[in-house]
Design a protein around this nucleic acid. Sequence first.
RNA 1: GGCCUCUUAGUAUAACGGUUAGUACAUCGGGUUUUCAUCCCGACAACGCGGGUUCGACUCCCGCAGAGGUCACCA
Length: 480
Amino acid sequence: MRTRFAPSPTGYIHIGNVRSAIYPYLLAKQSADGKFILRIEDTDRARYVEGATELIEDTLEWLGLNWDEGPLVGGPHTPYFQSERKPIYHLWAKKLIAAGRAYADPTDAKTIDNYRKVCYNEKRPYLYRDFRPENPPEWHEGIPLRFKSDPKPRKWHDEVMGDLEAGPEVQDDIILIKADGMPTYNFAHIVDDAEMDINYICRGVEYLSSVPNYLALYEALDLPVPKFVSLPHILGPTGGKKLGKRDGAKSVTEYRDDGILPEAMLNYLACLGWNDGSEQEIYTKDELIARFSLDRIQTSGARYDETKLLWMNGQWIRRLVDQQGIDEFYPRTLGFWPDAADNFDDAYKKRVLAIIYDRLKTLSDLRDMTTYFFRNPSIDTDMIVQNKFLKKFSIEELSELLQTSAEALTDSAWDEDTLQATLNQLLETTGRKPAELFSLIRLSLSFAPFSPALNLTMSVLGRDLTLARLHQTVTALENL
RNA sequence: GGCCUCUUAGUAUAACGGUUAGUACAUCGGGUUUUCAUCCCGACAACGCGGGUUCGACUCCCGCAGAGGUCACCA
């Protein structure tokens, strides 16, 4: 089993096109000797973007889609950049010329445009082969080389779409080598896939209508026809169009910066348009490899749903922390803490993480959800006075409750369990309901819309900070 | 426009002729004797339309509609 991901370095990889890397990866890894190859299709100089190759490599590495052959790692079919394989394409091109299956095309662009218009006016499909020049010159670099097509009905099987067929009307004299000497995608990928022994070609459905032309080329080149795997598009948020950069499709690595875990991303994307028939939702990479099958890839496009990705990411955060423990998970959170956390050591941040992780949807939630652990919150007495449990109390009552609490806590031991016991006792002595007393203390400590369990929050915050914040709230209330 | 593909709740999907059409996210309600979240329970919600075939159709066939793809010296 040899599969490949063959992007063109024109920019970042977004969620709309990364699936054509994920599926071939999973496919290759299903067999012990399977290989996943990365090939950079950089034959279009005009669209080439500096640094895009690195972006692609970075994305694949982040997702854990390690390639067995390709840039950086090399392999038996080096080079893996098409721009460096020009002689190979020319070699195959000359074979076609020798066999009378390719010809140089001296026609200029304007004339070709005219052909198109003629066909349009006559309401017949435009096919270049209807305008094939009679005495083409000998081919040399500088003019395009065209395939001399042999149109006939063709049938083939697609691993996702099933049995397909097409008539001669879609087969044409496609350009093999451009005027600049570079091959077109149509030619280069066929040569490369054959040279590199790729036997499963995974790519988007947009190539479906070109397959008849490819079939003709395989035939003319006398090359084995690989299996075709056409992947449906991922649709944008509105309409039924495929998701693209125009829809604001973010780069995959942008999700990394937003605190999405690669496990969640891979899981979500793999299951968008594929399922194993079970009701399982969370899959590790190894599980995906084990369960993946081409015949269960969806034939219709799937809409990208960020809400579900977020849910899945929360699942993964909890799962990883519960499985690995805080210490092992902690390094992933670096870079996501609020600025104020810079002055605190890892041990303290780990304690915060341990009590907050189960309410994170993304790692970047840490930024807003943990600030009061690292700096004094700005006092907003409205949060207390207008709280649904507290608004029935007078300022004096609130102030007194806080002072009573502070006193009780002054002498309490500071472990979680004792703190909870102290808090419970406080409920009895004050005769207040948990929602009332605890909300008051919680808000006084954090001035945040939510926080972990009160005893845990206090235990991490420590006695000094806890008491200080209770007292400063008392002062603030009395100054109202 | 020609050719090709697709069509189950808001979203992602299950179903391979016989089910009260299942699940997850989202939404709404409730519980877990403090908020938020987790977790648990419950509710809402779908077979694009029209013909066939069949005792019986989401499932097979045909037509229609809608959506998308493709018709480059881009991939």
